[in-house]
Structures are given as structure tokens and as C-alpha cells.
Design a protein around this nucleic acid. Sequence first.
DNA 1: CAAACACATGAACAAGTGCTCATATGTAGA
DNA 2: TCTACATATGAGCACTTGTTCATGTGTTTG
Lengths: 119, 119
Amino acid sequence: MELKSVPCCEEALVHDAAVDRVRQNLPPDERLYDLAELFKIFGDSTRVKILYALLESELCVCDIAKLMEVTQSAVSHQLRVLKNSKLVKFRREGKTVYYSLADSHVIHILDQGMEHICE
Amino acid sequence: MELKSVPCCEEALVHDAAVDRVRQNLPPDERLYDLAELFKIFGDSTRVKILYALLESELCVCDIAKLMEVTQSAVSHQLRVLKNSKLVKFRREGKTVYYSLADSHVIHILDQGMEHICE
DNA sequence: CAAACACATGAACAAGTGCTCATATGTAGA
DNA sequence: TCTACATATGAGCACTTGTTCATGTGTTTG
């Protein structure tokens, strides 16, 4: 993508030093991209609700659907997203599949977010 | 929205207890919705990059645009989103507007996410 | 194997999002 | 007040996303 060469703030010399310093300490683009992808997963109320539900107890797809009052299909689609992002794991027992949180990072991320909300 | 009355998993009696318990400990829908809205803000690489930049130093709009190699307009739009969510604050000095992180919650949320990425 | 159940998945569509472009607002200086 | 600069904002558009509906896959039971 090309950028127009717009005249920028003229205190350039002063700010350039700060900009360069910031640029050097910035995580690589790819990592920032991955981080945004992760938060994107948490950025949907259906998925957040699923995660909070699994925080309490391991649950099968059907139970989650009942709990949330959405279709089994919708839940299944979202569980796939969560599974791909390694946020939940699952085990099969006969016909039913039980989902649970993959690790404690999920809890910590949710907690930090909640803390900001409840200021 | 109406839901089709689909026959659900038949161990209903067993699971219903778990479902009810989970339902009771679940945060209210509105809170879950707000939480998702918060994470949605972090779910964009442009905004995440802006936040990481501000983590180092207070910066004016133009510097951020230079740093990120995007247009001033794009930065300004995103800063508005961050401002509305109380994730950044700003101060005016003549023609230029300096932005900085609103509080330390932002840092903690980013950190928790990074930790999950870098597993 | 056939039937029933739990779950997964693909297509399609409506709603939301982030960018660009053009323009408006606010500020400082002549 | 006129001009230049820094930033903000509105409209339009391409792209993404979450849901629904229909159907496919996998498992158990008869």
C-alpha cells in the first residue's frame, strides 16, 4: 500500500529521536499481528461466554448450547475457532465431546479484561 | 430469536445439574458483552501497535503515523476508538495533540496476551 | 447394516469494521 | 483576517465475521 507524502509535524528533529527509540523497542510486526488475532478471539460475546462457562466446568457442546440459548451449530462453529487458537481442548466420550479450557492463560486474560471493565 | 426445539443430549438429567450450576456462576450477559467489546478493541493490529508505541513514550498523532507507516487519517480514526474506550488519554499543546496510555490495565492486558502467544 | 443421536462443516447472507479520500475544525503566526 | 499546519471526521467501499440452514461425519445400539 502506497502512502501520500504528507508534510508531517515540523518539530521533526525533536520527535524523530523519540520515534526511532519507540520503533526499536516495538515488538516485530508479526508478533503484534498474532497478538491482535488472539484478542480478536476474545472480542465476541458468544465466545467470551463459552470461555466463562468452561471456567466453571467441562461441558459438552449440547450443554453449552442449552446454557447460552443459541443453536448447536453456532456453538460448534465458535468452539472450532477456540480450538484452533488453542484456547480450549476436548475429549471424546462415546457420542459426546467434552470441552474445557486449554490452560490458565485464558483465565488471566479474562480477569485482566474484567478488571478494566469494573473500574 | 427463536430456537428450533432440537432434542438435546439424553444424559440430560445428569448434565442439567452442571448446566444450572454454571449458569448461576456466569457473569451477567451485559458484563460479558462489555468484556467482549473491550477485547474487540485489542483485536486489531493497528490499534495494538499504537498501544505498544504509547507504552514507550507519549506521542503525537503525526509521529504515530510516521512510526506505523499508515496515513494520519487512519491513526486518528483508531485513536478515537481507543479514546472512547478509555484506553488512551491526550493533552493538547498548541497545534499538536499528544496521546498516552490511560492506565496500567492496558499494559497488563497486553502482557497476558503476549504470554499466551509466546508459549 | 440401519437408525438415532451428538457434533462438525460448507454455503450464503446480513451486519460490522477499517481503510481511503475529501473536507472540516482548531490553533498559531503574519 | 488570511494562511499554514496538526488533527478530526463523514461518506463510501472492500473486506471480514457470525449466524442460520442444510447436510455430512462419527459413534452407539439394535
